[in-house]
């Protein structure tokens, strides 16, 4: 049997800190840690993996945090994430919806899941988050911590 998880929920920070604002997901988790956030388990990912389906099957709540190139007026948004069998044809891109679908199909698990998208602006091969993205991240962080 697999070990019981520590918390009821898990937060995935997804991205690459070597690509400027793509690192928003990781930075978000860093900030949560620095503020003593301990309601959820925290996991860093360059990209989601198929085995994450097994991991989330043991939680009641899942939050996927990722940077977004979309126009987002408020700087961030949350939306409910529903299972979907949509699958890209490489191992390099696996959507949160697909992970939920696999958790449901393989493990009969239906955690409540949300996506937190934070708007980013710069995506070059450099370290460091842009000032505008940092403002968006702090708004998202305040929202989560006060939710």
């Amino acid at each position: 049997m697999l070990k019981e998880v520590k918390h009821k929920g898990i937060v995935f920070g997804i991205g690459n800190t070597g690509r400027q604002d793509d690192g928003l997901g990781w930075l978000f988790l860093d900030h949560l840690k620095s503020k003593g956030f301990n309601k959820y388990d925290l996991e860093y990912r360059y990209q989601l993996q198929i085995e994450d389906a097994e991991l989330i099957s043991r939680y009641q709540n899942v939050l996927f945090v990722d940077a977004s190139k979309d126009e987002i007026e408020e700087g961030f948004y949350t939306k409910i994430c529903r299972p979907s069998e949509k699958y890209s044809f490489t191992t390099h891109e696996l959507m949160p919806e697909t992970i939920l679908f696999l958790a449901q199909t393989l493990y009969h698990a239906k955690p409540e899941a949300k996506i937190l998208a934070i708007k980013g602006y710069q995506w070059e091969l450099k370290n460091g988050i842009s000032k505008k993205a940092m403002i968006n991240m702090k708004k998202a962080e305040d929202f989560l911590l006060n939710d």
Binding site: I50, E51, E54, E85, Y87, F89, T98, L102, T105, L106
Partner: peptide, 20 residues
Amino acid sequence: NVVGVAIEFPELAKKGILMR
């Protein structure tokens, strides 16, 4: 693809996941 494998052959897919 692997999602198809998960649907049609779930026990095989689960073992693959846990082996990796």
